[in-house]
Computed example of a mutant assay.
Amino acid sequence: MGVVAVVAVVSVTAGAFASPALADAPHRTGHRATQQALDAAVAAGVPGVTGRATDKYGTWKGTSGVGDLRTGAPRGERDRYRVGSITKTFVATVLLQLEAEGRIDLDDTVDHWLPGVVTGHGHDGRKITLRQVLNHTSGIYNVTADKGFQQTVFARDGFLKHRYDTWTPDELVRIAMSHKPDFAPGTSWNYSNTNYVLAGMVIQKVTGHSYADEIRRRVIEPLHLRATTLPGTSTTVPRPASRAYSKFPDDPDKKTYDVTELNPSLASSAGEMISDSADLNRFYSALLGGRLLPAAQLAEMKTTVPVPLGEDGAEVGYGLALMSQKLSCGTVVWGHSGGIHGSSSDAVTTSDGRHSLAFNFNGDWSGDSQAVMEAEYCPK
Rank of each mutant, 00 (worst) to 15 (best):
S351T: 11
H112Y: 00
G186P: 03
I340A: 01
H27P: 00
H136N: 02
A358H: 10
L322V: 11
A314D: 06
D55R: 12
K88P: 02
L293F: 06
L95S: 05
R28Y: 01
A358I: 07
V237H: 15
A8C: 03
P47I: 10
A347N: 13
A40R: 08
D253G: 12
Q370K: 13
T89V: 00
T236I: 09
P240S: 10
L22M: 12
L293Y: 09
T129C: 05
S269D: 02
L292M: 06
L287I: 11
R218V: 02
V173Q: 12
V133L: 14
W334L: 15
T59M: 04
A8S: 06
V42P: 15
N190A: 11
Q151W: 05
T207N: 09
G45P: 09
G102M: 10
V219Y: 09
V202E: 03
Y284Q: 12
H27S: 02
S19H: 01
A40N: 04
G200L: 01
Q36D: 14
D111C: 07
Y81W: 08
G62N: 10
L22W: 14
L357V: 08
L287Y: 08
A299W: 01
G45C: 10
S11L: 09
E300T: 05
V4L: 14
V83G: 09
A21R: 12
A18Y: 05
V7L: 04
D276L: 06
R126Q: 11
S269A: 07
H341K: 12
E171G: 07
D39I: 06
G84M: 14
T194L: 02
V4M: 14
R243E: 15
A5T: 04
A347E: 10
V153S: 15
Y81M: 05
E99Y: 06
S210Y: 12
Q97F: 10
A33R: 13
H341E: 10
M373Y: 04
S138R: 09
L96H: 11
A321T: 01
S328A: 15
A53M: 11
G15Y: 00
G30L: 06
T50N: 08
T229Y: 11
H112K: 05
W113C: 07
W334R: 14
P306K: 06
T50W: 01
K380I: 09
E171A: 11
E272F: 03
L230M: 13
V3T: 06
G84E: 08
A92M: 07
T71L: 03
I86N: 12
L309V: 09
D352K: 14
P238S: 08
L114F: 00
D68I: 02
Y318H: 08
M1H: 02
V305G: 13
P308W: 08
E311T: 05
G289K: 13
Y57R: 10
K326P: 12
D346H: 09
R131A: 01
D157A: 00
A40G: 02
R163A: 04
A371S: 14
K302E: 12
Y284H: 13
G102P: 11
R291M: 01
R243A: 15
S234C: 03
A155T: 01
T29S: 06
T63E: 05
H136K: 01
A155K: 04
D364C: 04
S324T: 15
P240R: 08
L38D: 12
V197I: 02
T109N: 00
D312I: 00
C378F: 10
S275T: 10
F159Q: 02
T89R: 00
T235R: 10
T93L: 08
H336N: 09
S188R: 04
